[in-house]
Design a protein around this nucleic acid. Structure first.
Lengths: 268, 268
DNA sequence: TTCGTTGTCACCCACTTAGTGACTACATGT
DNA sequence: ACATGTAGTCACTAAGTGGGTGACAACGAA
């Protein structure tokens, strides 16, 4: 029984969702208590009894807890489904407000001098994921994708791939292992797949703690995104360049032509 | 042009979504700047230049901003669609982690002595909304609903109503005004509707600043939920009781039989 | 070299929040 | 009625966080 572990997890997540520690502890406590007074709650959650009242009041105002105004008061958590639904609603409402507000804001386009060699860095799992999907959807000719880790083959990604391939875009997908390649074949049947030798991924300059490659994406031979996964922090980091003349893109194109696509595409 | 107003709104919402003030300002700034350096950003957002770097770093790690590591560095916000998608993904992931964690947590069901007269209070728009839907879905015989304000007739609510009515549950819905009644008729055709005289809603003990009634819900004559909307704070507050013998429910049943349903249901 | 710019740090101040205790009102049993 | 433990509010402290500012070294362009 890893109950305590999950209790901790729940408390942490609730804090990430915006609750304070006491509030999170109280909610989790009430969730496993069916119904309780301040005293009981305080005992089981380590929240000072006198502060349970504040915490519960906040929870109540957020629709996560109900209160019975007797003496002593009784508190009860709403059902888990109600709670998550409420949280989702609140968040969705906020995101929509954000969308509206930012859409109706003037963009100051002051003499934008787009230099030449732009290489952008971005990090964070979900951000990179979205950018990947975005780029794939914008492709008009060719998408070359190498996936370094199984977990990166998300449903959204598969959708984007199948969507773009139906527009006549050539799709070339590489995998690191054979089982992964098969997975890709079944999920994206119209793609040409291949297995990347580890050669240049774990590569010659293989230092010591191998920075695992995450994704590698080349769109229309003019936009490139490469991501790697930090061995310790598990954080995904990516660099990203656009423009046919972009240095990064040029290098990527060359690498692709040589080491990757060679066997399947005699390459430009 | 209410640009500045919307900028403020966006900043506020972003903070509600978990960003710090500087981060929010920077993101909004970058969103309208297409691309910028710390200096430009600082000028337009009022964020101290030396703190722009911290803020942007955080934003980058959240996948909301990309960074060009040149000198001077350039920052760029991801597109609004990418940003909202990323935010949604992150939140959804958290809620799911929460669901999992709480589902695998033991419930301590210590000799639960359910007393008799339980009346629970809950507040918060979305929480009450979910509870309403929940209760409606659980109905087996009859649902009596009075809606005090048009804004409360949400899509989810309509869905729940139509779902339950298809299970053979009698549906009686009251409205305060005629247009509202018509709306209900079209959206929930199988319901019996009526117009509630204002009599007992704005009622005899009409003090001064009328506490507007929000919802009034009676399920199977044994569960009641009444909500009102605070005139100033606009906060919705509700009380809720279960059990055929529950005092609140008894009173509600009596009220219903007399003042409300009388004309349509000779009522027990 | 020189001077403005860029980026990093270290710091202060105000505010929030975790944690504690005083005190009043209440409820219970005798 | 009384006394004793419980319930609830409030006011306070201490620690941490976040907004705000300046010192300073590294850099880049005249």
């Amino acid at each position: 029984m890893d109950t305590t572990e999950n209790v901790e997890e729940a408390i942490n997540v609730l804090q990430q969702l915006g609750l304070k520690e006491y509030e999170a502890r109280c909610f989790v406590g009430l969730s496993r208590l069916r119904s309780g007074t301040a005293k009981k709650l305080s005992k089981m959650t380590e929240v000072p009894r006198t502060r349970v009242y504040d915490a519960v009041r906040v929870l109540e105002s957020q629709g996560l807890v109900e209160v019975q105004h007797s003496s002593p008061q009784e508190f009860r958590a709403v059902s888990l489904e109600e709670a998550t639904e409420t949280l989702r609603d609140q968040y969705e409402a906020r995101v929509e407000r954000l969308e509206y507000a930012l859409n109706t804001v003037d963009i100051i386009d002051e003499g934008d001098n787009t230099p030449v060699q732009q290489v952008w860095a971005l990090s964070g799992q979900s951000g990179i994921e979205n950018r990947t999907d975005q780029l794939i959807k914008e492709a008009t000719d060719e998408v070359v994708l190498v996936i370094g880790d199984e977990s990166l083959l998300t449903a959204d990604l598969v959708d984007s791939l199948n969507e773009v391939v139906s527009n006549g875009v050539t799709l070339i997908i590489g995998a690191l292992t054979e089982p992964l390649e098969e997975q890709i074949q079944t999920k994206v049947p119209d793609a040409t797949t291949f297995i990347t030798g580890l050669e240049w991924l774990h590569s010659e300059n293989a230092t010591e703690d191998e920075t695992a490659i995450g994704r590698l994406l080349l769109i229309d031979r003019s936009t490139i995104l490469v991501s790697s996964i930090m061995p310790d922090s598990k954080e995904e980091q990516a660099i990203f360049g656009e423009g046919f003349g972009n240095g990064l893109v040029v290098i990527a194109r060359r690498l692709m032509a040589q080491g990757l696509v060679a066997a399947h595409d005699p390459g430009q």
